[in-house]
Amino acid sequence: MQVTFKVTRYDRATGEKPRVQSYALDLPEGATILDGMMRIREEQDPTLAFRAACLRGVCGECTMRVNKSGKLACVTRVASIAKNNEVTVEPIRYIPVIKDLVFDMEAFLWRKIKAVEPWLKPNGGASDREHVLREEELAEVRKAMSCYMCGLCDEGCTVIAVDGGFLGPAALTKAYRFVFDPRDHARVERLRHLSEPKGMWDCTHCFEANGHCPRGINPTDRIFDLRDESIRRGVKSGAANQQVARHYDSFVASVKKSGWLDEGRLAIESEGWTNVAGLLELLPTAVKALQRGKLPMPYLHRSRPGAEQIRRIIERAEGKPS
């Protein structure tokens, strides 16, 4: 199979701008992208840098962006992805590159994994025998922990695209593994930590992580589950993230009171009545909305029909007698 690899080259040590280099290859049928990269290094260009380990798509080491799509190079067949006998190979997005296809995973992912204190904080149990656990308690935790740490969900994340500080779907999936592990005692503490700025409430639920995960782990859903669990346990926000709690309280209070959302009040209460700087930030948006006749006026907000029923539903969900 005749194919041209167009590989993005870069070296942090020189700092020169990335450039694309073309390599013409004759590869056997069934060859993978990694086979092609090996062949280039062995026969044409020994300076080409990349990583690989297991060679069978189970370790997450050889992540690359191939024809604009994040892939594990060792199990991506050239024939299945080449267009007009060409493939482009470049670093995954948003990651600091060290050299060619070798990335700074510490900066991109490992530091975030470490930030969720990724070890079990055991809630006891006799040390001379196993925990007695039902399969149903373990199945989802097990699925979350089947993550290869390949980084492809973070590469697809639309928040990381604009804020590299966001904890991101991979680290949150790692956190899920502890929050929902029946043997961990630190759930509430973990949820509080995850509720700090740049944590789980920064997710915009765009579902890209689900689409990018090569293993069907559905990181976006894990983030939803973490948030639900957080609310269930009364953790509305982290200490430095009170806006989330105010938003939550205002939302519930509004729906409970009038049966629907008082958007104007929500915006103000989320910032906080005494938060002058925050309220000022709302002003330009409010002015534009006013000009277009779309400004929700809190004092005009009226209860909708059936509000009483809605209140009872909420209270029942909250566990209060109706």
Partner: peptide
């Protein structure tokens, strides 16, 4: 014992 230790570390062995 080593397996039980892994269970206490957080391994997710099938039940």
């Amino acid at each position: 014992r080593a397996i039980i230790e892994l269970d206490h570390m957080g391994a997710l062995f099938n039940r």
